[in-house]
């Protein structure tokens, strides 16, 4: 059960705070929205957070002006479309 930072895209407005707090995990796409920088195959909506980034991720959750972020565990994610 790895910790993941879940991005709610319906709320995200690409304000960039999370990308400043987690510069090694999140970049910004062409329009400013957070873009997971991990290798292909990862889930770009649920960015895996390792121990050393745990605190910064928690800050990102707290400081996101749109409250578009949440910390969760991988197993909790509703991966199916139903």
């Amino acid at each position: 059960m790895r910790e993941v930072l879940h991005i709610d895209w319906t709320r995200c407005d690409g304000r960039g705070l999370c990308t400043e707090l987690l510069p090694t995990l999140l970049g910004r796409d062409d329009w400013g929205y957070p873009l997971a920088m991990q290798a292909a195959g990862g889930d770009p909506s649920n960015v895996v957070i390792d121990f050393q980034h745990s605190e910064a991720a928690a800050d990102a959750v707290k400081l996101c002006p749109k409250m578009a972020l949440a910390l969760a565990y991988e197993a909790d994610q509703a991966d199916e479309t139903w």
Binding site: D8, W9, T10, A70, D76, Q77, A78, T81, W82
Partner: peptide, 25 residues
């Protein structure tokens, strides 16, 4: 016709997909 848009449309009259942390079931 996206499942969460269906639920949203019936419940709130907006046929837009919902952010879902939990399954509709």
């Amino acid at each position: 016709g996206e499942a969460s848009a269906v639920v949203n449309s019936i419940a709130n009259g907006k046929a837009l997909p919902l952010e879902r942390r939990r399954r509709l079931s």
